[in-house]
């Protein structure tokens, strides 16, 4: 399978902070969902910014095949424009790419329907719940049909029920166009549920501490959370994480 993007022995150093990431390798085949798990400050967001092309590494190389507009990012906060309604927020990437406003707004409304927000089309961010705002953010990421989707702790501020619903929604939407996905999380179970491959990172500087592949269909079948496969995967990831944090030498 061909790669959508990859980090090859990348290192990132910040002035006065030293090397925070690397050497670090990560290859993203087409259509794969990879979860990145690791302690706070280990460089997960930094790795995501490299993959998005928003930042350059101090050493090593980044290869990216998506063209402009084919990479989408969802941040921890919904990151919506508070002055614009949901439709205008979702239409933004299309309009910035030069699409006519009416057409962009039509497609934005379609994208909002796809995430179950047909009733929030004219609502402003302040009128939405946390979960709804995150869905708007997801719709904005998907409206351009990206080949690379980068999710930086998108569920961090949400309750458990909303998280589970959104997890299944992301799988359903992913299944329509099958972009390569990187999903950053602090939650071991969430990583094992979301991804085909979980990469665990250690900190200072951020490096790969372990990888777990999960052999199970995507989207997840009903009852997957209580299955043997899921529990084993979560245990493996947990062990990697404990190692990464130095609890087991």
């Amino acid at each position: 399978m061909s790669e959508v993007a990859s980090l090859n022995a990348v290192e990132v150093a910040y002035p006065g902070r030293g090397t925070v990431l690397g050497p670090f390798d990560l290859a993203l085949p087409e259509g794969e969902i990879v979860a990145l798990v690791g302690p706070s400050g280990c460089g997960k967001s930094t790795a995501l910014r490299l993959l998005a092309g928003l930042e350059q590494p101090t050493a090593g190389t980044v290869t990216r095949t998506p063209e402009r507009g084919q990479t989408a990012v969802v941040f921890q906060a919904p990151t919506l424009m508070p002055w614009a309604d949901a439709t205008t927020n979702v239409a933004l990437p299309l309009e910035l790419a030069g699409m006519a406003k009416a057409k962009a707004q039509d497609q934005a409304r379609e994208a909002l329907k796809a995430v179950g927000l047909e009733n929030a089309i004219g609502s402003k961010p302040a009128q939405l719940s946390g979960g709804m705002a995150m869905r708007v953010s997801l719709a904005r990421a998907l409206v351009t049909r990206p080949r690379l989707l980068l999710l930086d702790e998108p569920f961090a501020a949400l309750d458990e029920i909303t998280r589970r619903n959104l997890a299944d929604d992301i799988h359903r939407l992913w299944d329509q166009t099958r972009p390569a996905v990187v999903f950053v999380t602090h939650n071991v179970e969430e990583a094992a549920y979301m991804a085909q491959r979980v990469v665990v990172m250690s900190a200072n500087p951020g490096k790969i501490a372990g990888q777990t592949t999960i052999e199970a269909p995507l989207p997840r079948p009903p009852g997957f959370r209580t299955s043997e496969v899921f529990r084993n995967a979560a245990e493996d990831v947990s062990r990697d994480l404990a190692k990464a944090m130095g609890h087991i030498q």
Partner: peptide, 29 residues
């Protein structure tokens, strides 16, 4: 302006004029 919104505008290749008009001025209102 929200730095993540700035990144989003960069990601989608917004011109400085688009950023001013659609991000900075509304944020400043």
């Amino acid at each position: 302006t929200d730095p993540d919104l700035e990144r989003l505008f960069d990601l989608y290749g917004a011109t400085p004029w688009q950023k001013l008009q659609r991000l900075r001025i509304p944020s400043a209102t």
